[in-house]
C-alpha cells in the first residue's frame, strides 16, 4: 500500500522528469554532433575546401565515427597528474553544460523546470564552467596546461562581468528573472533598438566565455600547444570537446531567449505563427552558431593583453553606462515594468 502511494507520489513524476530530460539531452547531443559537422563544412566552404566527405553521405556520419574512435582509445593519465581532479574536470565540465538546459524554454511551456530565477541559474552555471578548465590545467601538472587554465580563468571572469551587466539591461525592460517571461514580455521597438548594442556585446562575450576564436587563448595551439587540453586523451578529451560545443549551443540559446525573442516568430510577424515555436527557436540558435563559425573562419586570435583590454576597458565601462542610460530612459518614459 505504501509502495503504491510512493509510486504515485514520486515514481510517476520521477519517470516523467526522466523522460523530459531525455527529450532534451538526446536532441542536444545529436545537435552537438551536427554542430561539429556544420563547423567543418562551413569553414571548409569559407576556405574553398570540401570538409568531411567520406563517412556516410556528404560525410554526415563523420562526427559519430570520431566519437567511436575517441571512445575506443585508451585514456592516458600522466604519472604526475592529480588523478581524481584530473578525471573530475572533464566530467564536471560536461555535467555543467548539460544541467543548464533544465531551465531553457524551447517553446511555450516546453521546459523542464520553469523556475523564478531562471536567468540567475543560467548565469551561475555558466560562470562555473571555468572550474573545469582550471581544474584540468592544474591537475595535469604540466606547464602548458597550467598556463592555459590560468588564462582561461582570467578571461572568463573578465567577460562575465560585462555579461552580467548586459543581462541586467534586459531584465530592466522585462521585470522578471523567469526565462519564459523574458521571452513573452512585450518590448516596444525603441527598447529593442536600445538593446541592440547590448546584443553585440553579449555575442562577443559569449565567444570569450566559450573560449572560441578569436578568444581561444586557453587552447592557443600556436603558443600553448593545446592549453589545458594538452594532457587529455580519448574519452576524457571527448567530454571536454562535447561540453565545449554543448556550451556553444547553450550560450546561443541564452542569447536567443534574451534578445531574439525565443520561440516567437521573428519581428513579431503574425503570419508566421503557423510555424511551431520550437522551429523558430532552433533556427535562431543556428543563426548565432553560424556567427560563431563565421567569426572563427574570419578573425585572427587576439593577443592576451588586447583581450583583457577589450573586456575591462571597453565592454565594462560601456555596459555600465548603458545600464544607466537604459534605466534612465525607461524611467523617463514611464515604461519600467510594473510589479503588482
Amino acid at each position: 500500500m505504501t509502495l503504491q502511494i510512493f509510486l504515485n507520489d514520486y515514481g510517476l513524476p520521477g519517470a516523467l522528469i526522466v523522460l523530459q530530460i531525455l527529450a532534451f539531452v538526446v536532441p542536444l547531443l545529436i545537435g552537438v554532433a551536427y554542430l561539429v559537422y556544420a563547423e567543418r563544412k562551413v569553414m571548409g566552404a569559407m576556405q574553398l575546401r570540401q570538409g568531411p566527405m567520406t563517412v556516410g553521405a556528404f560525410g554526415l556520419l563523420q562526427t559519430f565515427a570520431d566519437a567511436i574512435k575517441l571512445f575506443s582509445k585508451e585514456i592516458i593519465i600522466p604519472s604526475a597528474a592529480h588523478r581524481v581532479v584530473f578525471i573530475l574536470a572533464p566530467v564536471l565540465t560536461m555535467l555543467l553544460s548539460m544541467i543548464a538546459w533544465s531551465v531553457i524554454p524551447v517553446n511555450e511551456g516546453w521546459v523542464i523546470a520553469d523556475i523564478n530565477v531562471g536567468i540567475l541559474y543560467l548565469f551561475a552555471i555558466s560562470s562555473m564552467g571555468v572550474y573545469g578548465v582550471l581544474m584540468a590545467g592544474w591537475a595535469s601538472n604540466s606547464k602548458y596546461a597550467f598556463l592555459g587554465g590560468m588564462r582561461s580563468a582570467a578571461q572568463m571572469v573578465s567577460y562575465e562581468v560585462s555579461m552580467g551587466l548586459v543581462i541586467v539591461c534586459v531584465l530592466l525592460c522585462v521585470g522578471s528573472l523567469n526565462l519564459t517571461e523574458i521571452v513573452t514580455a512585450p518590448r516596444p521597438w525603441w527598447v529593442q533598438v536600445m538593446l541592440l548594442p547590448m546584443f553585440v556585446v553579449f555575442v562577443v562575450s559569449i565567444l570569450a566565455e566559450c573560449n572560441r576564436a578569436p578568444f581561444d587563448l586557453p587552447e592557443g595551439e600556436s603558443e600553448l600547444s593545446g592549453g589545458f587540453l594538452v594532457e587529455y586523451s580519448a574519452a576524457a578529451f571527448m567530454l571536454f570537446f562535447l561540453a565545449e560545443y554543448a556550451n556553444m549551443i547553450l550560450m546561443s540559446a541564452m542569447a536567443t531567449i534574451l534578445f531574439l525573442g525565443g520561440w516567437l516568430p521573428p519581428f513579431g510577424i503574425e503570419a508566421l505563427d503557423f510555424v511551431p515555436g520550437v522551429i523558430w527557436f532552433v533556427l535562431k540558435v543556428s543563426f548565432i552558431l553560424f556567427v560563431y563559425i563565421w567569426v572563427r573562419a574570419t578573425l585572427p586570435r587576439y593577443r592576451y593583453d588586447q583581450l583583457m583590454r577589450l573586456g575591462w576597458k571597453i565592454f565594462l565601462p560601456f555596459t555600465l553606462i548603458w545600464v544607466l542610460v537604459m534605466a534612465g530612459t525607461l524611467m523617463a518614459t514611464n515604461s519600467l515594468p510594473v510589479v503588482q
Binding site: S127, Y131, L134, M150, A153, M156, V157, E160, G164
Partner: peptide, 15 residues
C-alpha cells in the same frame, strides 16, 4: 550565493 561566491570569489581563491 552561487554566482558571487562560487562564480567569482572562489575562482580568485583558486587562482
Amino acid at each position: 550565493l552561487a554566482i558571487v561566491y562560487v562564480g567569482a570569489v572562489a575562482v580568485l581563491f583558486l587562482f
